[in-house]
Design a protein around this nucleic acid. Structure first.
Lengths: 235, 235
DNA sequence: GTCATAACCGACTATATGGTCATAATAGAC
DNA sequence: GTCTATTATGACCATATAGTCGGTTATGAC
């Protein structure tokens, strides 16, 4: 509904043209917001790849030229939306983890934040998940990994506050991957069946168990110098 | 390399035309295999959506008409490859879990199977993951969810053997989602950094913890009549 | 060798796409 | 009102795409 303005406002500065003062500006921002909102909806409905610029402008009810006035090309609006979603997710995470005082509450906060974000914003989860899927293919959009790396780094920072041992970067990265991978992995599968609002209820029960395992995982990693050099039994 | 024949052979019967005897057949199977192999590689390189039929025939070095001789349309080869990947994964799972005698070893076997499959077959993981990503969007390919549902059901069957209480289907489904979501979720994130072969080493350490949490999760679910009716605290 | 047919081919069509550009509408300064 | 910069437009272009079809080649039966 009035999400257009919200999106237009929150989205980072358009990188194409530096923001001029604030004269006609209002009108432009509104149109820009219409485009972003249309794209967000269409990406959820048909997928990013199958959504054309024509689709977006038709849905936003603006001329095609208008799209290219606001965005340099199709990739830009994709990058911008994914940046935006991750920014939103990070905001929820920061909010939730602000008052954590130890590792356990931080982990709980992280999981709660993800669950709350994903279950309240289906469209954004789809966008998040599709963006992540792009990362698995070799030729994805340039720079699309940036927001995801930022996201992982932020999670690492939050955890690091309460991990006494200075773990090597790859180990920290793996811990972060585990935290965020587990939550979104579960969600993506739960989504096959439309387990909509009951998902987070069920997840509450799994949460404790997951926190416990992650704690243990982190503790083990903290003791050893770093598991990647050990020929641990895998099969 | 000689994967063409393997793919061609393993892939289920072409649904377009019932398999004729076996006369010229050999030649046809080889060509079909070339097409499947080309598609599999291209899907990994550029993504499913961005791969055109021309791309596939060019890579397979066959005429375009040949593609439409073997497949009714573009969707068919996509569906067939995803079916095939999941069939492969299920085979590994069955193999690994065959001798399990209790819930714990079954869970361990499941996780081991996934880790072994994903880390040895990157291309197939990408295909698997992209297919799953399709499921989150509203208008995905018709019937693409079928193999994934089969996959979830198979996991449920494996677990059910060692769960005494008869859990309601939605609960079983969630347990299965947890098992497979957690593994592939971790993997997909680990993939952002190319943590290639060291991934499974690290995962060995996480595995135990995950098995423990899943065990606990299942046990909790087995006691209660079913969590979906309980207004459990979520925030 | 002949013949039937399975398998293959690539030019072709209709359509859709990303992106451009000359033009037009709008809004505020004066 | 006029004037100017900002914003919006949609016809247009070059290219790419999914899918078709009449014709060609390879294969094995005889």
């Amino acid at each position: 509904m009035n999400q257009q303005l919200e999106i237009a406002g929150i989205v980072p500065q358009p990188r194409a043209k530096a923001r001029k003062a604030g004269r006609h500006n209002r009108r432009a921002l509104k149109t820009r917001g219409k485009l972003l909102e249309a794209a967000r909806t269409l990406f959820t409905e048909q997928g990013i790849e199958l959504t054309s610029v024509d689709d977006i402008t038709r849905r936003a009810d603006v001329g095609k030229g208008t799209f290219y006035y606001h965005f340099t090309d199709r990739e830009e609006i994709i990058r911008e939306l994914i940046d935006w979603v991750i920014e939103q997710l990070l905001a929820v995470i920061d909010e939730t983890c602000r008052e954590s005082t130890d590792l356990k509450t931080t982990l709980e906060g992280l999981i709660k934040a993800h669950v709350s974000f994903f279950s309240n914003r289906w469209q954004d989860f789809v966008l998040f998940f599709q963006g992540r899927s792009e990362l698995t293919i070799e030729q994805s959009y340039e720079g699309i990994e940036t927001p995801f790396l930022k996201y992982l780094e932020r999670v690492e920072e939050l955890l690091e506050r309460f991990i006494s041992a200075k773990l090597p970067p790859p180990v920290m990265r793996r811990i972060a991957c585990a935290v965020v991978g587990l939550v979104s992995g579960y969600y993506s599968f739960a989504a096959i069946e439309s387990l909509d609002d009951s998902v987070d209820l069920t997840f509450a029960s799994l949460r404790e168990a997951m926190v416990a395992s992650l704690m243990r995982f982190i503790q083990e990693a903290s003791i050893q110098p770093g598991p990647e050099t050990l020929p641990a039994a895998t099969g």
